[in-house]
Amino acid sequence: MKITIDPALCRSRARCYNLYTDLFREGTDGKGEVIITEDFEDEDLVVDATSAANACPVGAIILEY
C-alpha cells in the first residue's frame, strides 16, 4: 500500500495525525504529512491507513492498494 495526501485538498483538520501517529505527522500550516512514504504491507498499518482515509473530513488521503 502507498499513501499520499493531496495538499490542495487538505484543510488542516488534524484528524489523521491525531489518530494514526504511526502513519501521519503534523506538517507545515497544520497540514497532514505522510511518515511512511514508501510501499508497505503490514496488515495493521493497512487497516489504519484505510480507516484514516475514510475519516478524513475532506477526502484528502489517497491510497494505492
Binding site: M1, V46, V47, T50, S51, A53, N54, Y65
Partner: peptide, 8 residues
C-alpha cells in the same frame, strides 16, 4: 480483504 476497513 485488503480494503476491508473502507466500509461505511
Amino acid at each position: 480483504r485488503r480494503n476491508a476497513a473502507s466500509h461505511l
